[in-house]
Amino acid sequence: MKKTPVKIQRRNFVKGLIASSAATLAGCGQTEPPTYGNILRMGDWLTYKSHRLFLPSNSLAREYELSDISPAPAIGTTNPADPDKGGQHPEYAPEYGKLLKDGFASYGLRVAGLVERPGMYSLAALKRLPSRTQITRHTCEEGWSAIAQWTGAPLRTVLEAAGIMPNARYVQFHSYDGWGDGIDMVDALHPQTILAYGMNGRDLPVPHGAPLRLRVERQVGYKNMKFLRGIVVTEDFDDHGEFGSIQNGWSWYVGI
């Protein structure tokens, strides 16, 4: 007698599991990072889920002293207006070229999606928000590391200024070199996650993502998207297709 409800629950649980995996495979309207039936992506998913389950959501990455600041390599795209330096986008490359000419005076970060007040945030407006300065270690998937000082507006402050809607689950980022990526709300609302406009006491240099880049200190280097063009708050997971990490064979969550 006692076993019956348990059995029903278990059956419902299995049904739910099948339904959710079917939704994952369908790839639309999903709210979880997909595995695409790929064993490597399933391993990534396990790492992501276990980090979210077992690690505290607000633990801070180590911050260092001014004397720890090191030389910092710039890799990948080092100028989105220059085809020899990773500038590849037919529309954004000339747009970035114009911004470079006027010293980013006409730059505006597009904030869209699940926010009450979507719109453009000028660099001056972002600099007027309360800022955070942190000296942290940039850890590249390649195996090297560098310590730099980053100054910017906490992403949480920007999102709260725009008014986050309750169903928000992810923040997507779009760059001037045409890439797209996203982070979940745990990382988005983390106190060290900032939209950085300053590096080592100066304006962010072009090779490091001027005028604005993401710093998400609990993930490895490539999640810290450079040359931000806009951010979109979503409920659904977005793999950004051929412009995102997953379809290019890279893990979406890289807290490891």
Binding site: I39, L40, L46, T47, P71, A74, E142
Partner: peptide
């Protein structure tokens, strides 16, 4: 200081890292 890399490198970490962690 900062410097920009001007060459392509050998990099198979997309699958190698995920396989390593699996």
């Amino acid at each position: 200081f900062t410097a920009s890399r001007t060459y392509e490198i050998f990099n198979q970490n997309g699958w190698a890292r995920s396989l390593h962690f699996l």
